[in-house]
Amino acid sequence: MTVPLLTGIHHVAIIASDYARSRHFYHQVLGLPIIAETLREARQSWKLDLALPDGSQLELFSFPAPPARPSRPEACGLRHLAFRVTDLDGVIAHLQRHGISVEEIRVDELTGRRFTFFADPDGLPLELYEAES
């Protein structure tokens, strides 16, 4: 029996242009619990560790004047960050109550699962992918 090289995703790191705005979005709007929040004074940078229910984490960073990056779902590089949800319609309604635009629901032609895209405060493409309940 061989041991897998990779056993899961530990974290995804995001650099925000406006730390307070993105902190509110990921913690308050998306409801991710805070694990730790650290001011790294030497780097003039905040680091916010947020928990996902499966044990993975989202790291939110601030840096002075970060360069812009293409953020469309079809841009070259990391395409998007997808969150697994069990009630796609309920999550969409929650986001819309917070004034967040959500694209039309699509159906994955390979799996038959429903999904949609929305964006974080910096325009980072985020996906909601409906999994089995």
Rank of each mutant, 00 (worst) to 15 (best):
A75F: 05
E37H: 03
A16K: 03
S22R: 01
V12S: 09
E41W: 02
D49E: 08
S22Y: 02
L30D: 04
S71T: 14
L58R: 00
G77Q: 03
R79P: 02
E109N: 12
L110I: 06
A65I: 09
R69F: 09
P66W: 07
F118S: 06
V102K: 05
F118C: 08
L39C: 09
T38L: 15
A65W: 10
S62Q: 04
A93C: 08
H27V: 13
A82H: 04
F63V: 09
V102D: 05
P53D: 12
F115E: 05
E103Q: 12
R23F: 09
C76Y: 14
E37F: 07
G112W: 04
T116I: 09
D49L: 09
D89P: 04
P66K: 03
L48Y: 01
G77P: 08
A65C: 11
D108Y: 05
R40P: 01
R72G: 12
F118H: 05
L48P: 04
L60G: 02
F25Y: 10
R84V: 09
L81D: 03
D108W: 05
A65E: 15
S62H: 14
A16G: 15
G99P: 00
L30A: 07
L78V: 15
W46Q: 13
D122T: 00
L58T: 03
Y26W: 14
D89W: 08
S101C: 08
I100C: 01
Y26L: 05
S56P: 07
V102R: 06
E109Y: 12
L50R: 01
A82F: 08
R113D: 10
A82K: 02
A42R: 13
H98G: 14
S101Y: 06
S56M: 05
D54I: 05
L95V: 12
G112F: 11
L39D: 14
E104I: 06
T111A: 11
H80Y: 14
F63Q: 10
L110N: 10
A65P: 04
A13D: 01
A93Y: 03
F118Y: 11
T116R: 01
G31E: 02
L32I: 08
E74C: 10
A51H: 03
L39N: 12
P33E: 01
G90D: 01
R79S: 14
A13T: 13
P66G: 07
R23A: 12
A65Y: 14
A65F: 13
E74V: 11
F83G: 02
D89R: 11
G31Q: 04
L52S: 02
T38P: 04
L30P: 02
R69G: 02
F115V: 11
L78Q: 08
C76K: 11
V91Q: 13
H10R: 12
D120C: 13
V85Y: 02
A16P: 02
E41I: 11
S17H: 15
L39P: 11
G99S: 03
D18A: 11
L95C: 09
L32V: 07
P73W: 02
S22D: 05
L32W: 07
I34P: 00
G123K: 01
F115D: 06
V102M: 06
T116S: 13
I14D: 01
T38Y: 06
D49C: 05
D49I: 08
E103N: 10
Y26G: 04
L32S: 00
L58I: 15
S71P: 00
P67D: 00
E59K: 10
I35W: 03
A119C: 14
P73T: 06
R40V: 15
P70V: 00
